[in-house]
Design a protein around this nucleic acid. Structure first.
Lengths: 144, 144
DNA sequence: GTCGTTGCAAATTCTTTGCACCTGA
DNA sequence: TCAGGTGCAAAGAATTTGCAACGAC
């Protein structure tokens, strides 16, 4: 028996119904180390739960996004939207332009710049968005 | 008679053929103050040149992007890719969330991070994109 | 003449929608 | 009960592709 009380509470707070599909989606998104495409999440859901429809995944993700439970991004340039749980924490991702893998990193080089901007031009940074492109370890090996 | 010699040279350097469609595309992209969707560019092209096919626009933009003549981005969350001329200048922008002013800055905090990523996880950075949000000098004053 | 480029139509891929049925509150 | 959630099939939108004709070099 899984403990879905945490998710149940979250969903209730947002005024949407609790269903096993939604628990599963939140759980998978929470587990995932990087943003998932709808397709990826759909496949994981089919493995995890009995059955689910693609439209349901799309619709539910849209619902979640409108409640700010998840963050939708089109950052990666392959025409697929990606969703991640809104942890309200700070993380950036590396995107491998060869294999399309996303790698989360803890490093954030903005902090220092933030101070500089404040001093230099009195600009008060409230947020930022950083995307880094390149070749991951594996693809670098293959390119050699 | 238009002077396309500039574009001709660029195209030749990249080893692709020079055509009037391509001149028109480069010119329109150069004129545009903001990245264009394929559709937008297509409409402008139809006004400008006699006729052109949508697939040609798609194919040519892809060619240009692969030669780094243009930059493709999916920043805007409407499922449409946008293209802008690659001016090869490295600059970031501060975006004031209050007055919507864009401020260009020279500072770039990525260089150091790039080295770290290479050493730490053998990730080879080829590009990045940084957007910084906040309140500019003027709007800060008003907030006080 | 050759090979890259283009037009056209059809195919693909990602996403959305209409409608009937189902289910949680 | 009953409004919101879901499945299914079909529609829609953005983008890609196959192929024949065309045009730059």
């Amino acid at each position: 028996m899984e403990d879905n009380s945490k998710y149940k509470e979250v969903l209730k707070k947002e005024g949407v119904k609790s269903t096993r599909h939604r628990y599963a989606m939140l759980e998978l998104l929470e587990k995932s180390k990087s943003p998932l495409t709808v397709e990826e999440l759909f496949i994981l859901l089919k493995e995890k739960t009995s059955s689910i429809n693609l439209s349901t995944v799309y619709r539910t993700l849209e619902t979640f996004a409108s409640k700010n439970l998840v963050i939708k991004s089109n950052r990666v340039d392959d025409g697929k939207a990606r969703y991640e749980l809104n942890h309200h924490e700070h993380k950036h991702h590396l995107f491998c332009v060869s294999c399309h893998k996303l790698i989360a990193i803890e490093e954030c080089p903005i902090g220092e710049l933030q101070q500089i901007l404040k001093k230099k031009i009195d600009f008060d940074v409230t947020g930022h968005n950083l995307e880094i492109y390149g070749y991951c370890h594996n693809c670098r090996k293959m390119e050699r």
